[in-house]
């Protein structure tokens, strides 16, 4: 599908490649391990899928119109996706994000003409959610608020896209699916599709082992505002992953597989490898939500550099 000619960048979402992780399989010779490269989406992350679905569904039923501003709270990748599709489809976009998101992310979304509103960095993404809700409540008719945490189009994108594509790619082999919990949209939608498959597929949710963690994009459900779209009964298992293990796996994927990925991918793959070691035989699939270059922080020497 990726070689086809398309009418709009909006149509370039999905149909991402899946790569086999041979260097990890050396530790688990009877288990195949695959990584679906969601960073191959046009906005550079898995978030293109839910953002596109939420916008197209809202345009179709009249919730998103040209005289409204799309607003949402986002740690970055969803914001990049809204900004990209907003520009391509002709809708205004405003984003609420904690002030400590990286400069690169702020610059990427602004490049598409998006307006940024900053929330308290001490409050994390939950603070951005509360700040965004307050703005919408003050002027409800001015905004379209997709609210990725409670919007059914978010998991729907993964039910129709991610889950169906995984079955096309490895439906004859997959025994286990692993992915991290953020909004939980990926886990919910993909799992619902995989559970419809004729053979049983075990679906495992990765979550940060500690409430205070460094796996950006992932949520520790026990200490966070739980997203309304999250159904705790759906995952077959919750697999805690330590920040350091996720970070080390990200480094290893870059060095050994040529995959420069973000920390949530490291956590997903660490989870997949943990599971592979335990099951001994089978086929484990996980996702790479984004690339590592989204997380470059300024180095000491360039911190105060000005163009």
């Amino acid at each position: 599908m990726r070689h086809r000619r398309i009418e709009s960048i909006v149509d370039a979402v999905g149909h991402t490649p899946m790569v086999r992780l041979r260097s990890l399989e050396r530790e688990t010779p009877e288990v195949e391990i695959y990584l679906k490269l969601e960073y191959a989406n046009p906005g550079g992350s898995v978030k293109d899928r839910p953002a596109r679905q939420m916008m197209l569904d809202a345009i179709a039923d009249g919730r998103l119109t040209k005289d409204r501003v799309l607003i949402d709270s986002t740690s970055g990748n969803t914001g990049v996706a809204y900004s990209l599709f907003g520009a391509a489809l002709g809708y205004r976009v405003q984003l609420v994000m904690p002030e400590n998101v990286s400069q690169a992310r702020k610059d990427i979304t602004r490049a598409f003409g998006t307006e940024l509103v900053f929330s308290d960095p001490m409050e994390g993404s939950d603070g951005a959610i509360r700040h965004c809700k307050a703005l919408v409540e003050a002027e409800p008719s001015h905004y379209f608020y997709p609210d990725q945490y409670s919007n059914a189009s978010n998991p729907k994108a993964h039910f129709l896209g991610t889950g169906a594509e995984i079955l096309e790619q490895v439906g004859d082999r997959i025994t286990h699916f692993v992915t991290g919990l953020g909004t939980s949209g990926t886990m919910m939608g993909t799992t619902r599709r995989l559970k419809q498959h004729s053979r049983p597929i075990t679906c495992v949710a990765v979550e940060p082992a500690q409430p205070f963690h460094g796996l950006e994009g992932l949520k520790h459900m026990g200490s966070s505002i739980v997203p309304p779209i999250f159904d705790p009964a759906l995952p077959d298992e919750l697999l805690p992953v330590e920040t350091e293990d996720g970070w080390d796996m990200s480094d290893r994927l870059a060095a050994d597989e040529g995959l420069h990925v973000g920390h949530s991918t490291g956590a997903n793959v660490f989870g997949a490898l943990t599971l592979a070691r335990r099951i001994g035989r089978g086929c484990v699939v996980t996702l790479a939500p984004d690339r590592g270059d989204r997380y470059f922080a300024p180095l000491r020497w360039e911190k105060h550099y000005e163009w």
């Binding site: 978030k47 709270s73 986002t74 740690s75 970055g76 990748n77 969803t78 994000m97 904690p98 400590n100 998101v101 960095p121 001490m122 994390g124 993404s125 939950d126 990725q148 945490y149 953020g182 909004t183 940060p208 205070f212 963690h213 460094g214 796996l215 950006e216 994009g217 992932l218 949520k219 520790h220 966070s224 997203p227 920040t243």
Partner: peptide, 10 residues
């Protein structure tokens, strides 16, 4: 002294 958390979720 501020302890700044990771930006979690979405």
């Amino acid at each position: 002294l501020s302890i700044i958390p990771a930006i979690a979720g979405g």
